[in-house]
Design a protein around this nucleic acid. Sequence first.
DNA 1: ATCAATAAAACGAGCGTTCGTTTTAAAAAA
DNA 2: TTTTTTAAAACGAACGCTCGTTTTATTGAT
Lengths: 196, 196
Amino acid sequence: MKNLKENITKQKIFDFCIRDFVKGGYARSSIRNIAKGTGVSTGGIYYYFSSKDKIAQFLYDNATEFVLNKIKSGIKKARHNDREALKSIIYNLFDMTESDPYLIEFILYVKHKDFLPSAPPICSSKPFEYIKNFIKERIKAGVFRDLDIVIISSLIMGPIIRIIQLKMDGLISGDIRIYTEPLLDSIIISIFNNQI
Amino acid sequence: MKNLKENITKQKIFDFCIRDFVKGGYARSSIRNIAKGTGVSTGGIYYYFSSKDKIAQFLYDNATEFVLNKIKSGIKKARHNDREALKSIIYNLFDMTESDPYLIEFILYVKHKDFLPSAPPICSSKPFEYIKNFIKERIKAGVFRDLDIVIISSLIMGPIIRIIQLKMDGLISGDIRIYTEPLLDSIIISIFNNQI
DNA sequence: ATCAATAAAACGAGCGTTCGTTTTAAAAAA
DNA sequence: TTTTTTAAAACGAACGCTCGTTTTATTGAT
């Protein structure tokens, strides 16, 4: 029964920490508070994670993996329909923001530098790298306008991230998924070679 | 001599802290390190600021004020030329990012929650509020397309902030001011009613 | 002599982490 | 089946250290 129990406790720590790190930042989060919040003792936490940094690394790895899979499968499901692929990127990010805001906030705003000083920045973490490569391909294929990759990717990801940010800061109260279509239309106007 | 000396010391603290807060975050920055970095003793720092939080508030107020003035004067100088007004917003933000990266990073990324728990989020701080109002006016005047303010403002500010973010995370090595014109052109395509 | 300014020393609280111990529960032996 | 053994899992007090802050002492200009 080893694995089951381990997973339950690890999951408890995961769930609590991702909220705690987002709420007050990594530095302000303390093992004692994590212990209190999870019902696991300080010693128990160290039984599963060798250090506080390791907890954050575990969170970071799992969170990026989860988001990457969502994005990947969305693009694959759109199979060669560029509009649908783009739509899936927007919708999935908005959807995850609504259903799992702490996960997205952790990826977007918790400074990975705090616990992974030598790793690449979060905005070039796996999901974002994947999207960037998707965009590069579409430029090569002549679907997107042949502008600097920096421009194109910022025109696409910038507004998406901005809306997520506004939602997280409480400046949007409603469900941001309703912005999927109008945002998609506007982005397409600025980046597609031939409107579809 | 009180005022002069006070200004010099306050300025020293300002210059160092804005870098220190950005580099490691507010929580990781310590009074002792600020003292060492500025050459002012811990007691000296407390002579000018009653608490660590007050330092951050001072930084926050001065930084937002500085950025607001830049944005304001840029828009005013464009006098009724909407393209130029938009260009000034983009250029000024890119320009400040290049010449004073810590200032911009402080406004964009240092969580104000850390030291101003009850204040509005930074993304609705004075400069951003000002820009938002500018956009609202342009929509009312029929210059910008009549879309939801959330969509329009995200189409404008999103890509700008995204490029700044990429620069700060080291994913763009060159001068981002060169993106001003091409970004402006692309944004205009998506938001203007009548191309100009 | 007065007082702004600096410097240094000290305080208590809270931090990440360690460690000796206890609990739990499955495996082995009777 | 009952008892003994074993090892994983969890506990929580304690350690050494750094933190923000305060106090105390000293300097230098007016």
